[in-house]
Amino acid sequence: MILECKDLTKTYHGFPALSDISLQIDEGHIIGLLGPNGSGKTTLIKLIAGLLSPSSGTISIEGNPVGPASKSLISYLPDHFYLDGHRKVKDIIGFFHDFYRDFEPLRAYDMLGKLNIDPNQKLKTFSKGTKEKVHLILAMSRRAKLYLLDEPIAGVDPAARDYILQTILSNYDENASILISTHLISDIENILDQVVFLHKGRIHTHACVDELRQETHKSIDDLFREVFKC
């Protein structure tokens, strides 16, 4: 098992953002973390990544508590830009190479080339969508056990989105798992094999996508719209 969360609760100033989350993720899966705005997706990802600490409950990643050991196994893509825009892409790649033992610069350069991104340019010269692509490429160029991708394709055009999904499919190996939070369900649901629906800080559903389709005769996108109808 790659990830195990037990009775996880996180409160912000008394307000519960996540309540009693128990979640187990085995290796070799691509899991969609889906839920309306404010349902706790980013909080859950940040807890697993070790950027927040839980109010109660435990998290273990391949048996390790959250800490240096777990962080070396996790490649985390935040939902916002965090890299210094004044640096050139190739310098950032060098930085990642120094920082992460499992980072493979060749894979990063290969993906940059396929998306026509010039590594000699400074990050701040790129459009929002291209910056997103660079961040995702960096996250996917590590040989991690668990990838946490928080809204990876929101600002990216549909053609590049397809390429990025292909990239995700071709870059992950059977021993790793990917947790993707997104609102663009219809774009990614075919590459998922499991979904977790979060509702008001609790797990509403954790199931295999094809089983959900078989039971409901609906796409995951339609099901989401039905479950979370406003």
Partner: peptide, 14 residues
């Protein structure tokens, strides 16, 4: 095959 169809490898395996 999974890449060609853009689907999860587990789904293709099944």
């Amino acid at each position: 095959l999974a890449q060609e169809a853009s689907v999860n490898p587990n789904t293709m395996q099944k």
